[in-house]
């Protein structure tokens, strides 16, 4: 019942950490065994890619919300109403010059 930990990389670049009690584990088809360090490196690379994607998404969405907010302000909406309708709050999204 002792646990063993294995690290895999799949052909598409996905990585897996597996913990199993199997005495003679069957490894997934097509998977390559990784060392602990190699797994950590590849996993960090995937997470860094995701983090950049999320930052890009949030920057785009924030710009869209600010544009909506600015249009509402230009149409003489109260700033609080404009913030509610647009989802953009100027104080929470300071403009960095």
């Amino acid at each position: 019942m002792a646990e063993q930990t294995f690290y895999y990389e799949y052909p598409d670049g996905s990585v897996t950490e597996r913990v199993t009690t199997a005495a003679v584990p069957t490894h997934p088809d097509g998977a390559t065994l990784l060392t602990t360090d190699s797994y950590a490196e590849k996993k960090a690379a995937i997470e860094a890619t995701r983090a950049q994607e999320y930052a890009d998404i949030q920057a785009t969405e924030t710009a869209q919300k600010k544009a909506a907010y600015d249009a509402l302000i230009a149409a003489n909406f109260d700033p609080a109403v404009a913030a509610t309708l647009s989802g953009y709050t100027p104080s929470a999204n300071p403009v960095v010059s």
Partner: peptide
Amino acid sequence: GDQANTALA
């Protein structure tokens, strides 16, 4: 037990 945590590329 067997458990796996996969980060999709």
